[in-house]
Design a protein around this nucleic acid. Structure first.
Lengths: 213, 213
DNA sequence: CTTCAGTTCTGACAATCCGTCAGAAAGGCG
DNA sequence: CGCCTTTCTGACGGATTGTCAGAACTGAAG
């Protein structure tokens, strides 16, 4: 069931798997270089050194290849989830854990941003396939943060005027968009470290009720 | 200088202006319906009821039309900027002002999201033209928020461990991404009002140092 | 080494889209 | 109505899309 298949449905062998992977890596590379809006099947095929027909053997179109890359993001981000889950269970030293999360996740965006942007775009554009991926991609982050908020609210440290899901979503939004602004920030004197420290503080404060003063 | 021109550079008259506008509106409508990735010049031309050649008289390609739509976002968002500038000068009743900003800006996203998403995408993908638009679009928000943060820091109500620009950016990120999650939130019981209240609280707290407990 | 069956890849094709002309249509003015 | 300017389009060469039938490759069996 988790076997990789061609567009005609047949399960593919070792050689085909390598071709499929070359196509995916090339798609990701071109996505980084030239963006998604005018990325053609022809571009990928030429770069791979294969016939366009080969591309269509594995993917319906470029978006379908980006979808496959998006699906892989779920596994790729798993270590960050795991780290977070491990650290956030104990109640202590939350700020350091927030710093690590923000730092690791910013690095993750620096590597995988080109794919993540299209995953979010297509999900925002209401494509159900991509929404499913986005949900699975976000769920562990959301669950961990929502739990933190609820715990802080239950113990009276954080106001119940905050909606737990919306609070988690707002922090995830910051994590997902700020890496895209880093270049502009650095041009105006805000270093990567300052950005990470700031987001970590905001995250920590929002999830625990710790004051920002 | 601010006259609208065709692709060959000539200044266009009344009839052509209307054609150009019909093309822009149609592009925006199709963008809402089917997203940006497979929006063809042909689709727009057919829907407008004109020859593709007419489209190319005004725009180099679909992305160029979206660029024009993005540029218009700057004027369209100006009332929100103005409202914010007017309210945020006085120091009082900040939370209500935050609520209004979040509510108005969420409405703005609901109407213009399809264009805003591509504007942000192309800027994130390092396209200088779109970056320029994004900068102008964001600048008033950023300026107002940065000023708030600095003022709160100067009066000792907000920790100087926060970078003012990064703080403003994080809040802007929440404003720009949360409308895209609203549908999912509502399915799980978080209403639009709860979302707005939450973001307003987070915004108010981050900009002023007001505690969340 | 040769044959053979299954797998993978590709050349070639019709259909569509791209982008550009020269010239047709529409509109205004004397 | 003629004339000029602006605007629009049919038609074209070129490129991309998506689909075949069959060619090339692979490994295993004889």
């Amino acid at each position: 069931m988790s076997d990789t298949t061609a567009t005609d449905g047949r399960v593919i062998g070792e050689r085909a798997l390598q071709t499929r992977r070359r196509i995916l890596e090339t798609t990701a590379a071109l996505l980084r270089e030239q963006g998604a809006l005018d990325l053609k099947v022809m571009d990928v095929a030429r770069e791979v050194g294969a016939s366009p027909a080969t591309f269509y053997q594995y993917f319906a179109d470029v978006e379908d290849a980006i979808f496959a890359l998006s699906a892989e993001m779920i596994e790729k981000v798993a270590p960050i989830h795991a780290q977070m889950a491990a650290e956030w269970t104990e109640g202590a030293s939350g700020l350091d854990h927030a710093r690590r999360l923000v730092s690791d996740y910013t690095d993750f965006w620096d590597v995988n941003g080109a794919v993540l942007r299209i995953m979010l775009l297509r999900a925002d554009e209401r494509d159900e396939r991509f929404r499913q991926i986005r949900r699975n991609y976000n769920a562990p982050f959301m669950a961990a943060m929502v739990a933190k908020v609820r715990a802080a609210q239950d113990s009276g440290r954080l106001t119940t005027a905050l909606d737990a899901e919306a609070t988690a979503g707002a922090m995830l939004a910051a994590l997902d968009r700020l890496p895209n602004y880093r270049e502009g920030f650095e041009k105006r004197g805000t270093s990567r470290e300052a950005m990470i420290e700031t987001v970590a503080l905001l995250l920590y404060s929002s999830l625990t009720g710790a004051p920002l003063s």
